[in-house]
Computed example of a mutant assay.
Amino acid sequence: MTEQEKTNEVPLSMEAGTLLKNKRESLGMTQKHVADRLRLRVSVIEDIENNRFESQQVATFTRGYLRSYAKLVGLDEKNVLAALEQHSEVHVQEQETEMQSFSRKTKHEKHNSRIMLLTWVIAIVIVGISAAWWWQNQQEDSLTQVVSESSLDAEQMAVDIEKIDSISADELIASTPAEIAPTMVESVVESEPAPVSAADDSAQAVTAEVVDAVATDASENEPAMVEVAEESTEPSVVVPEGMTLLTMKFAADCWIQVKDVNGRTLVSGTRKPGQDVELAGKAPFKVILGAPEGVTMTFASEPVDLSGYTSGKVARFTLPL
């Protein structure tokens, strides 16, 4: 074996960058000299000698850089590339190991997230059951309170009835208004047995006098009530001085609008049968009738002739005509 072959023999256990670096140093060359000869940056030579190869560069540029570097320092490029591939496989295996560990970590985190989700669901169910139990207790308490209040009201009513039963007829008549006293006196007299003593006769006479007095007061008050009712009757429309009375009676639905001499709207809208209109204002009036065939009008107590307006057409006119 020649000396040149011994020089080119390199141990495959060493990485490609380390082989090139050792060879360069044995030749006394600097990284700057190698970079200038290969027309590369010094940083690229440093990355190669430190075995910092990016995965993308291994497939494209790194092999070319290593071949050029090996030729420059006199190494067999096959040995250098073999060392590169050997250590690249180790690197790939390490990456796969890291990926597997990362996958296990991901599965573990996913498992933990499922446990956390299940825990939250159980907590929500417990809170919901507690809320339902509390609401049911509140409803039962409310029902118990209502029942107790009802029982108290019933007891109070029973006590009131007992008190009313214990009141004598005379006390009941004395505390009753004068309007209903005669009726109550009569019912009491009818319900009691016939008098048998002189004291009962005098009491009956007093009762009769009370009944007569109340009846007399009621008969005296009746005319006054009639007079008040008569006075409350609404008077007819009063026409102020300088204004004119306009009346409308409707036999069918009709939309109307009436404006006075100042353009002020006196009435507007739809009127139905029976909804008569009486208004007073300053003439002349501008009148619009949607269905004039169903309207009867008087202006200043004089009838207004609407026979000239055909059915189904809107009537527009000014009063007086």
Rank of each mutant, 00 (worst) to 15 (best):
V125R: 09
L27S: 10
V146G: 02
P303E: 09
I126T: 15
E241Y: 04
E162D: 08
W134R: 14
V239S: 03
I288M: 15
F317H: 03
E220D: 14
E171T: 04
V239I: 14
S101K: 07
I122G: 08
S307N: 04
G128M: 12
S150G: 10
R67D: 11
V277N: 03
S202A: 13
D305A: 11
A300L: 01
G274N: 00
M29D: 05
Q100C: 03
M116K: 13
M99R: 09
T97H: 06
R41C: 10
Q93Y: 15
A215P: 00
E222C: 04
E5N: 12
S168I: 04
Q257I: 10
V44N: 08
I48M: 15
T244M: 10
Q145V: 12
D201K: 10
I164N: 15
P193D: 12
V226T: 13
G64Y: 13
V147P: 01
K286V: 09
M184K: 04
S150P: 00
S307F: 02
I126Q: 08
A218C: 02
I126M: 14
E302A: 06
K286E: 05
G294F: 00
S150A: 12
L38G: 02
V10K: 13
S151D: 09
H33T: 15
V58S: 08
E162H: 06
T176C: 02
Y69D: 00
M116G: 06
A251P: 03
D200G: 07
L143W: 10
D276E: 13
E15K: 11
E302N: 06
V196Q: 15
A181T: 11
R264N: 10
V189M: 14
V226F: 09
A16T: 01
S219G: 05
K313P: 01
N50L: 06
T144S: 13
S151C: 05
V44K: 13
S311F: 09
E109A: 09
L27E: 08
D153T: 12
E96Q: 15
T296Q: 05
V73N: 04
R37H: 13
A280C: 14
V314D: 01
S150W: 03
V214E: 14
V159Y: 14
E94W: 05
H91W: 07
T216E: 15
E3L: 06
L266K: 00
E302G: 00
V226Q: 09
L38W: 03
L289M: 02
Q4S: 11
Q56R: 07
L38N: 06
L319N: 04
R114S: 12
V228E: 06
I167V: 15
A229L: 10
V211T: 12
